[in-house]
Amino acid sequence: MLSKRLVICLDVRGGKLAKSVKFVDTKDIGDPVARARRYYEDGVDELVFYDITASRENRDIMIDFVEEVASQIFIPFSVGGGIRSVADATRLRNAGAEKVNVNTAAVARQELISEIAGAIGSQSTILSMDVRRVTPTQDIPSGYEIVVNGGVTPTGIDALGWAVTGEKLGAGELVINSIDADGTKDGYALNLTRMIADAVSIPVIASGGAGKPEHLYDVLTAGHADAALVASIVHYGEYTCRQLKEYLHGRGIKVRMNY
């Protein structure tokens, strides 16, 4: 039986680690490679590096960065931010990333998902979606809307429909990031996560809102998520990976404890 995964997201800007609150006001907090290595040794199951500048000029820095990470950590990690083409995805994959995350560019041109899945495989193609709660309308019946460009631009696209479309196009995994919950530390968006996890047959990583170990437990049980993504609660030292995993293990969640 597969274990539930603890995933840590590191926002990277110009090779430095940053953590955002509600996607604004980012501040740098250190060397991401050293951090990644520390989390790796402390038992994180997977890492996500998000290039929050995602500019074209930054591409080569990001490739070097991925190479460096891949020589330091020996668990799967993914990279996201500004991936616009099969060439971008393939370069990151070849540099050592197990998976790539697409987000805004896939909303702009959804064929990007099938193109990347065709080139590097569905298992390596993650569709990340930033989601905001809205009043349900005819176009957005689920009451959850996709927002892009780091959570600032509404799209009019229904999040549930987009998740199902993403799976059909070949995404092998979904990251559901709640803009409403992100940075609040009040817990994951359980209803949103469960709604999407129940509608697709690919793994779902819940993101946004983790403040306490109970929140992880909740989203891995009531939220039906396969993995829980955390950031600030480990970046600022409130909890270690081991503490989070021991908590989950103690409550009967199957997690990887030997590392």
Binding site: L2, R5, R256
Partner: peptide, 13 residues
């Protein structure tokens, strides 16, 4: 079991 996903991806004993 419909809850078991393919590919089998992740950590397993």
């Amino acid at each position: 079991d419909k809850l078991l996903k393919i590919p089998h991806m992740g950590w397993n004993e």
